[in-house]
Nucleic acid binder design. Structure first.
Lengths: 250, 250
DNA sequence: CTGTTCCATACTGCATACAGTCTACAGCGT
DNA sequence: ACGCTGTAGACTGTATGCAGTATGGAACAG
């Protein structure tokens, strides 16, 4: 009825019935549990949603996904469960899974929550950062700046995520990190249609932030991060508005 | 091997094979989707974990749970998936589900995250609260105070949760509400062993908070909520310390 | 031509079946 | 006595089967 016409690099459950990963033989010293198929399916589906292969609102038929990914319905269902709690799909009883449709309001709320969490993370990071970690921050900063110069939006986005993730790591609060990661991925998705990341100014703000962390000035770091994330949120807003008015003129 | 010896009020999937809820017949105008079994299982398991029937570290054997709840392994597995992403259980590949073991560190991190989120929620609520909502807040406040007077710890805890939840609702940020709810339930669990909620002083703080919200003073409301949640965190800490030293003397 | 009813089909939700892996214990060797 | 190896049982991970419901379209009435 529908026609996904989606291409997969490799069939996830590669032939073998037992479905154990290809690396079963390599008996490295570590116990190295073979990752269950559901994990792979989960990852694959997020990727498909983020890159737009699976469009918002689209009905995800379990059997189709299963065949496409080369597994049975079972792992697919389990992955869908998790995707629902993470906000990627909506499970409507007796109807199945639908790719979640992000609303403008929800995007704003996500950015707001992210702002709060990241601000707290910056505060904690300023308290705890070691010299070594600060050095690493400057390293990430230089990498980011280089990518801005090279005008590589994809790279800049990745570098940005990396820097923020590292700050979160420094903060030493795993629960906080989990929640940020959850929000972060969804933001990245919502954000995608209007992709173009902020350039020089964002990274200037990063530099300020790192300075504050290096000085262990928690209040300042927190303040800068708050301003930083709120600006991203504003940029999102402006873009939407611009988009809307552009649409009017068409 | 193990002996859960747990008693269930009623068999979840009550006989009927199709497993549809008992309210299938009542054809009210609304479409009233029959809630899937996995939902019921999910709720039931959280309850069992919170009330201590399922102890931290315990191995959850799917078949046992299934039989106990009167369903098959399938809905149990799906519920476990969700429980994992929500932090209630750990799924070890090829070994199964184990009730998550809360560490002291993790509890502190959760309280910290909750504090940040609730603080933000209070700020937003102060901005948006309507007269009607404020009236409702005072109502909840009175209920809570009454329960404190009546020395009903269970009731106080519930009233507390209700008040906080309502503030979150007023804030109008659904994403924020989700995250708070996620953290909240785990906190309640971790907190349980040292249950006794703070009494009068907590509710005095609530009153101050509601006043600030009623005055639409976002900064003040935010400040009060921050102090309030941090105190709860401190209370948790003190209790742990007291416990530890008490144990020493034994 | 429009609106309604009925039916076929597709898909979900749940249950069951099967294959592979982990664990513990018995038996053997040292 | 102690450690190693082999084997049986238990449990997970995955696949398949089955019943019930939602949906779209055809047939029919107005």
């Amino acid at each position: 009825m529908n026609e996904p016409v989606i291409q997969l690099p490799e069939p996830l459950g590669s032939g073998k019935r037992g479905g154990r990963g290809a690396l079963s033989g390599a008996a490295t010293q570590r116990v190295e549990r073979p990752a269950p198929l559901r994990e792979a399916v989960h990852t694959a589906l997020i990727e498909l949603i983020i890159n737009g292969t699976l469009q918002p609102g689209q009905h995800l038929v379990e059997l189709e996904l299963a065949q496409y990914l080369g597994v049975s319905r079972q792992p697919v269902r389990e992955a869908l469960q998790r995707l629902q709690t993470e906000g990627w799909v909506d499970l409507r009883p007796a109807q199945g899974a639908f790719v979640h449709t992000p609303t403008e309001e929800e995007a704003d709320q996500l950015l707001s929550v992210r702002s709060v969490l990241e601000t707290h993370s910056a505060r904690l990071a300023a308290d705890r950062a070691t010299e070594e970690q600060i050095a690493r921050l400057w390293e990430l900063q230089r990498e980011g700046e280089a990518l801005v110069e090279a005008d590589d939006p994809e790279g800049v986005t990745a570098a940005n995520a990396k820097l923020h993730a590292y700050i979160t790591q420094i903060s030493g609060n795993a629960v906080l990190a989990e929640h940020i990661a959850l929000v972060e991925r969804r933001v990245r998705w919502y954000y995608r249609p209007i992709a173009r990341p902020r350039g020089h100014d964002a990274w200037n703000e990063h530099a300020e932030l790192i300075k504050a962390i290096a000085a262990h000035d928690a209040d300042l770091a927190s303040m800068i991060m708050n301003r930083h994330t709120e600006r991203t949120r504003q940029a999102y807003h402006d873009q939407r508005v611009a988009e809307a008015s552009a649409e009017q003129q068409t």
